[in-house]
Design a protein around this nucleic acid. Sequence first.
DNA 1: GCCAACGTTGGC
DNA 2: GCCAACGTTGGC
Length: 159
Amino acid sequence: MNHWLMKTEPEVFSFEDLISCPDHTDSWDGIRNYQARNFMRDNFKINDKVFIYHSRTGEPAIVGIAKVVRTAYPDHTALDPKSKYYDSKSAKLGESRWFMVDVKAEKKFKNIVTLKQMKEAKELSGMLVTKKGQRLSIQPVEKKHWDIIVGLGKPQKIT
DNA sequence: GCCAACGTTGGC
DNA sequence: GCCAACGTTGGC
């Protein structure tokens, strides 16, 4: 099983929004970066665990855990001229060059784990998300780092 | 295939 | 809202 971190801007789509979806499940669309796409397309497996990270907010932090419930399939928003994720190159191709997966919110952190905390924790040094200028919106997470963050976050079942 | 220009991300 | 860092685009 793999571990991942996915960023989202809570103003746009928050972890709470995911929880509000039917069955706490939604498609993770709008990924428009090749490296992130390739992770989803080539490496995401059913039941992989995902940290949901809120970026571009007062207190950037990991706020909860989701799991992969559907593996990669074409992100059709790339072909929709009305979508903000519309991609003219995909339209030209006649098929989406982007992919999305479905994720289900599983656990919510009792204590969110802030970027500041992660940067300060020696045991987490080397984590991609703590690196300056790291813009990758989907990142692999090492198991040892995963376990430390789960310990800090005190995840609780979503009812 | 190089690389300047441009657009976006995301912490602060 | 600023702006450094980075990824992508497109002219050559």
